[in-house]
Amino acid sequence: MTRTMWDSSVGKKTVMAASGLIMLGYLVVHMLGNLKIFFGSDEFNHYAHWLRTIGEPFLHYEWALWIIRVVLVAAVVAHAVSAYQLSRRDIRARPTKYVHKKPRASYATRTMRWGGIILGLFIVWHILDLTTGTVHPGGFQHGHPYQNVIDTFSTWYGNVIYIVAMLALGLHVRHGFWSAAQTLGVGSRTRDRAFKTIANVLALVLTAGFIAVPVGVMTGVVS
């Protein structure tokens, strides 16, 4: 069954939809957690530490965090590989362009591929910046995420990279969530408006929620 799933263009799109929804669910939680930065360094750092102790004493220290990381990496890889293979198929299927060109589809739809690549690169930078601290501006301190976040958003490029990526995320989610509903066969004529509305609300709330953090640092609300 798994073999036919991956062999078919419809099945591969299902993998893309399911992995996208996993990441989307994570992003909603991640965004809500980020907003705790507006309640001071103690609350934010305490929350960040709690992420490592989830499930204790049943789970060992950091196990829950690592389980989440493994699931997310699997989702990112499945999403990217299926997107790459489906895109290759799509481009091969239409090798000759029309001479008479017309603007096609919505902006969100046309930017899915480039938007996805931007988001992939962003994830790499984001982890190197705030998880490992490899490319972090200033001295990265483990266990002090509040100060680390302020350091990142005190640089112009930190703000630019983050805000551009979050705008790309909004567009990606806007077309992606609705598309996932169609791919998984749960969309219908009567539910179409509801799915489009949920997609737009998710896109808007996620983008606004994530961008609130750099804006907070820039305006001095978070310092």
Partner: peptide
């Protein structure tokens, strides 16, 4: 043939008005 990216161009071009949601039905 390529795959669906839900651009919706097909349903706009269809002279017989087959709706885009038809693809959703096929996926289901």
């Amino acid at each position: 043939f390529g795959g669906c990216t839900l651009a919706g161009e097909c349903a706009t071009a269809c002279p017989k008005g087959i709706p885009l949601v038809s693809i959703t039905g096929m996926n289901k």
